[in-house]
Design a protein around this nucleic acid. Structure first.
Length: 516
RNA sequence: GCGGCCGUAGUCCAGCCUGGAUAGGAUGGGGGCCUCCCGAGCCCCAGACCCGGGUUCAAAUCCCGGCGGCCGCACCA
């Protein structure tokens, strides 16, 4: 990609360093308690501003136009929900490791294959080990008969409500989806919904990762931006119409068959749909929408984006089709930022079975158990990748963040720390603060203040100089080019807004030619 | 979780091997002086041996454990 070549590891390190030094995010509680476990991060003042802007973009660009109903559900839910969702079964593997080749196996599956029976999963860890030895089960891979102890692999955080509960009866959700599935019926009713019916959640989720690593990429508590589209698979209208303008739009796929070569195919939506690859118009439309969102709104270049198709072995237990929207960086390779799963009626069916409540809805004069398509954004990873992709190092260190996503919209500086300039600068700050995120500073040399703003990606710097005192104009500096134009104070809010929404500096005024 | 390497101010590094007095530098940070536009200069200030145990008269230094980081394997619904 463009920009100075920096060794790959360095960029990751530099971004992490800036993030912690300038206040985007850092490891939670570590400063005071060195034993604080990994995988938990706090967002500092800058990180929160950036996060809020990304969430706002998602609400404005996806939820509102698509008519999604955003809700908020608890993080802690009764285990019955996770029984219905299949998470209990898939989160509590009892694993045994071959001491020779270090391959791990599910102990119950080894025994079921060997003994050709079902229903061993209820056995304890000790019983499983004994059974493995008693029946001389060998490692299917290397043939060794040398097992580790059977260990429980518990990927959900469990706890108990009520003073007297001694067995866990609740768990921290590993995805927000179950909240939407459980509340679907009432939400549909109170909103007088019809299919397709779209719900959305921003929420924290929890996974007890074995080894959290790589900063915000693998966390134990993280945030998802999820959209839950409930629909009748027999009738996906109005998505046939909605997709029409985008039939020529090229989706970027890494198909299962190209997994080895890594060859990305640019497939027009029409072709993806008609070949049956993207199943129906609804799913195709949402694949287009999210690729566009990441490209056009979050600013990831198309060549850095791809939908990687997951094979049957890789897919979640609930998914019949599954693409990861991945983003590429030189440092991290391809990393999944959005999980796009066609969950069919798996979730509603499970909850209907577990609760005994009929979750079918009336549509087109028939009863339908809706299917679910779910694009789920990993918010923390997205924030991290914005920084990673934006990082630049030339004579400056700076962040080429999309202008609308930078923590601060603009900085206001008096050129020198003189009373008359400071007074005027404070006026300008007050004028802009109503509509923008503004940073004010009067300390140190002007160059140093500019560079600090460059480092956190602030797109515009506004400087009050002696000419301001004469004619009420200020300079507006473009982060990317370091060029400046003079703008009258009374039209500054309007001009700044134009600039932030993408207008080039040259279209706002004649660039001054005062820096080299 | 396994193996390898590693852990000193916010950051980067020296000191560790060969134990010894006030742990040194750069950068960053705060304050001030100066300064009419890009990390300038000068002065002042604050700031660290990951945690716990052991050996020793004495531990940043040697040993053990924990926690954390990087790389690889595994895991990643």
């Amino acid at each position: 990609m463009a920009g100075t070549k920096v060794s790959t590891h360095k960029v990751f390190q530099s971004v992490m360093e800036i993030a912690q030094r300038r206040g985007f995010f850092w490891p939670a509680a570590r400063d005071l308690y060195s034993e604080a476990p990994a995988g938990f991060w706090i967002y500092g003042p800058l990180g929160i501003k950036m996060k809020n802007k990304i969430v706002q973009a998602w609400r404005n660009w996806i939820l509102k136009p698509e008519g999604a109903y955003e809700i908020e559900t608890p993080s802690l839910l009764p285990l019955a929900i996770f029984k219905a969702s299949g998470h209990l079964e898939h989160f509590f593997d009892k694993l045994v490791e071959c001491n020779q080749c270090h391959t791990r196996w599910r102990a119950d599956e080894l025994l079921e294959d060997k003994l050709n029976v079902r229903g061993i999963e209820g056995a304890s860890e000790e019983e499983l080990k004994e059974l493995l030895i008693k029946h001389e089960v060998r490692c299917p891979k290397c043939g060794a008969f040398n097992w580790s102890d059977v260990r429980r692999f518990n990927l959900m955080f469990l706890t108990a409500t009520g003073a007297e509960a001694d067995e866990p009866n609740m768990g921290l959700r590993p995805e927000t989806t179950q909240g939407s599935a459980v509340e679907f019926r009432r939400c549909y009713m109170v909103m007088r919904g019809k299919l397709p019916f779209i719900m959305a959640q921003l929420g924290h989720v929890f996974r007890n990762e074995i080894s959290p690593r790589r900063g915000l990429i693998r966390m134990r508590e993280f945030q998802q931006l999820e959209v839950h589209i409930f629909f009748d698979p027999e009738n996906i209208s109005p998505y046939d119409k909605k997709l029409e303008p985008y039939l020529g739009y090229k989706l970027r796929f890494l198909k299962l068959e190209d997994a080895d070569s890594g060859k990305i195919r640019e497939i027009p939506a029409k072709e993806a749909l008609e070949s049956g690859y993207t199943i129906n118009e609804l799913i195709t439309y949402w694949l287009v929408l999210y690729q566009r969102f990441f490209n056009e709104v979050l600013g990831f270049p198309l060549e850095r984006l791809r939908y990687r198709e997951l094979g049957p072995d890789e897919r979640a237990h609930y998914a019949s089709a599954h693409w990861d929207l991945e983003v590429y960086s030189e440092e991290m390779g391809w990393v999944e930022l959005v999980n796009n799963a066609y969950r069919t009626d798996y979730d509603l069916k499970g909850h209907s079975r577990e609760s005994g409540v009929d979750l079918t809805v009336q549509t087109d004069g028939k009863k339908v158990l809706p299917h679910l398509y779910e694009p789920s954004i990993g918010l923390d990873r997205t924030i991290f990748f914005e920084l990673l992709i934006s990082y630049r190092k030339d004579e400056r260190v700076w962040m080429k963040l999309p202008r609308n996503l930078a923590p601060y919209d603009a900085a206001v500086f008096p050129l020198l720390s003189k009373e008359d300039l400071i007074g005027k600068a404070r006026e300008v700050e007050a004028l802009l603060s109503k509509d923008f995120e503004v940073f004010y500073d009067e300390k140190g040399s002007i160059g140093r203040r500019y560079r600090r703003m460059d480092e956190i990606g602030t797109p515009a710097c506004i400087t009050i100089d002696y000419q301001t005192l004469e004619d009420d104009t200020v300079t507006l500096r473009d982060r990317d080019t370091m060029l400046q134009v003079r703008v009258g104070i009374e039209e500054l809010p309007k001009r700044l807004k134009e600039f932030l929404s993408g207008r080039r500096l040259e279209e706002i005024g004649e660039p001054l030619n005062q820096n080299q």
